[in-house]
Design a protein around this nucleic acid. Structure first.
Lengths: 203, 203
DNA sequence: TATCATATCCCCTAAAATGGGGATTTTTTA
DNA sequence: TAAAAAATCCCCATTTTAGGGGATATGATA
């Protein structure tokens, strides 16, 4: 019996983490070929030439992209998806064939990958969660990030405070982010608002 | 001209991160020797034989150990301390000659180390943090920015919730910033906390 | 046409924050 | 050493948020 080469893609913006994973992979006794991706979009391009066995995705690339990940599942039935859990945000484990954290040992990590690769059968649970915020939700988020109270946001948008609260519920449901500061960072990173737009002095 | 060998110690429990750092170090054109430490206590042992130039410390090893780190500063005047700023916890930047995050490029990281090594004694002034907040107020602010409730901050700092509220009053009085998001931006811009340290999932 | 996503509105309770008073003890510093 | 600053603690009333239920109307779309 021979071990065939395992093709692994890594989508991980942190160079340190990415290097660490590669280093551990290369130290293992598996025959592994690693490709680094900078973005989810690069997957199609890469898969034109190669057949990836495993795609490792950073949690930083997961938030609010469930739909894209589901699409990948559909397009590449035999591609195993492994999530890196940073502990910073909730990652939807149902979407992945396996996850690991930065604090797991290299043994654990290698075992996870080789086990997954052996039994290539997947549980494609359809936990549905919508991503992307609607325009109105973004409006409310901007208000939140600017430190406005629900009442003030309601006045600003000329809607009822109840509507604002509804939107907020949807925002937290969609993003899994509950704290003001988390949402601030989220809004900045998603370019929903820029730092310059934030009024520090607001209530 | 020859570059003298740089001795670097790494205190980083995450194998992935540690491997990544080493990998990046080895890829650089610097002459570097790396030692892995499993605990702060191992430093004395290691320094019996070698003279470390730089000690890289994971934020996981920093929390609640400020005193020990200060002691190291005193014992090893020429040892540069570099903190890995890496999510979930707050690291006291004043204690370090430099910090980097998991998301910094390898270039940044290498430059930081070689720059530090060249001018062995710079930063203290650079890190001049005069933002008017006391240490305790910063602690509370970090908690706020991480979306913790007053109660949770109180538990974290082992003080009464009333004390937390008092500190918060002082923070808003000093900064004039009342909103969570404003304080988040403030804390980031004043380098009291880095984006990576903010736990988006917290309440 | 029937369903879905969106946007709007409302009720409820419990928890948390806000903002106004204070006070005492410990640590720093002039 | 005495004064100042920091850190700790407490009470009060009011406002705001969190999270759980809902409902209705509209426009797109499958």
């Amino acid at each position: 019996m021979h071990n065939s080469l395992i093709y692994i893609g890594i989508l991980e913006p942190s160079q340190i983490v990415s290097e660490g994973i590669q280093s551990i992979l290369f130290q293992s006794d598996k025959a592994i070929k690693v490709y680094r991706l900078n973005d989810l979009e690069e997957l199609d391009e890469l898969c034109e030439d190669k057949t990836l066995d495993i795609l490792i995705i950073s949690s930083l690339q997961i938030v609010n992209r469930e739909k894209e990940i589901k699409k990948i599942r559909k397009s590449y039935h035999n591609l195993l998806l492994v999530g890196i859990d940073y502990g910073l945000m909730q990652i939807p484990t149902e979407l992945f064939d396996g996850t690991f954290t930065l604090y797991d040992s290299s043994e654990y990590f290698i075992n996870l990958l080789s086990l997954l690769n052996k039994n290539k059968k997947v549980n494609k649970t359809d936990i549905s969660d919508e991503n992307g915020l609607t325009e109105r939700e973004k409006d409310v988020l901007k208000g939140m990030v600017n430190g406005l109270s629900n009442k003030e946001i309601a006045d600003l948008l000329n809607i009822s405070i109840h509507t604002v609260i509804s939107h907020r519920k949807n925002i937290t449901a969609k993003t899994g982010i509950r704290s003001q500061s988390g949402l601030t960072i989220y809004a900045i990173s998603k370019k929903i608002i820029s730092i310059e737009e934030i009024d520090l002095t607001n209530h």
